[in-house]
Design a protein around this nucleic acid. Structure first.
Lengths: 158, 158
DNA sequence: CTCAGTGCAAAGGATTTGCATGCCG
DNA sequence: CGGCATGCAAATCCTTTGCACTGAG
């Protein structure tokens, strides 16, 4: 399954005349093993010094353009996760306090109702939807206990 | 209706020992008359030189804390709109190309289904939802005609 | 008078880019 | 070999902050 992700990543990069280098592979690995979207500092920390900021940003851009990675804008900085077709369709719980993001899913019939509504929207407005986003914004269970927690970097509090 | 918004804004600021100054009033005016969330450059442009960047940011922060304005993170920069209880509940069509945002609404029964699902999520995860966000990401009708359009600033192309 | 609000300029922080070097194909 | 990927450092862009000044109560 994870090798399948690498396989897909490889082919999508190839399709854009890009290489699937060790650095890019490691980024995909880290995103694959994480249960939720990662900020760049988090990614660098998980890589334990083997990734460099600027190259990581560059590689994330390449991966994003190849459709392997998706970039999210949460709070003041970006978070990255695998493209949806490499994971299961899911949505995000976003904590207003610590800016951490957790995945969740809704029942299939609700997703179906949403899709149905989007078709109507598209027809009415001429907007061509690519995907949707159903985020819940609030306070995560952890910050519920520690009011005011906010690390700024998106890293776990010390 | 618009004077009602000012009235509410006034009282919410007062509740935080803040004044409802001419600058703040103008920001609320501009947000009220716009049909969609505005970036800061857009706001300044609409104000035609009568607003200053740093003060506008500061006032938007004050208005946000008072619950008059909501800040969105779209793409690389922030966009601002009136708080939801000063408008109707709505969602956003976000154009991947020009980063412009348009409001839309879904049927009430679908909103009800969503709320229902969120209650379940909250119980399962301990996450305490404040509000939700149902964005459609794709290409707006305008960019569908002009592929690749992206002004960077969120301002309309020249 | 006093203190919050304002404008200007400088600082800050996330992200991007220029450039010389290293390595894959 | 040739060109893309990499790392470092400097630059960029949005946003925030420091500071002196102004105006309302």
């Amino acid at each position: 399954m994870t090798s399948e992700v690498h396989d897909t990543a490889y082919h999508r990069l190839r399709a854009q005349d890009q290489r699937y280098t060790a650095n890019r592979r490691q980024i995909v690995d880290l995103l694959t093993s994480s249960t939720n979207p990662l900020s760049l500092p988090e990614l660098l920390e998980l890589a334990n010094g083997s990734l460099v900021q600027s190259s990581a940003y560059r590689n994330l851009s390449v991966l994003e353009e190849a459709g392997v990675v998706r970039r999210l804008a949460v709070g003041d900085f970006a978070r990255f996760e695998l493209a949806e077709d490499l994971t299961e369709h899911h949505h995000h719980l976003i904590c207003d306090s610590c800016h951490r993001v957790t995945d969740y899913r809704v029942p299939a019939d609700l997703e179906a109702s949403l899709e149905h509504a989007f078709v109507a929207i598209a027809q009415q407005t001429g907007f061509r939807p690519d995907h949707h986003r159903l985020d819940l914004i609030g306070t995560c269970s952890e910050c519920g206990h520690r009011p005011g927690a906010d690390t700024g970097t998106g890293l776990a509090p010390a």
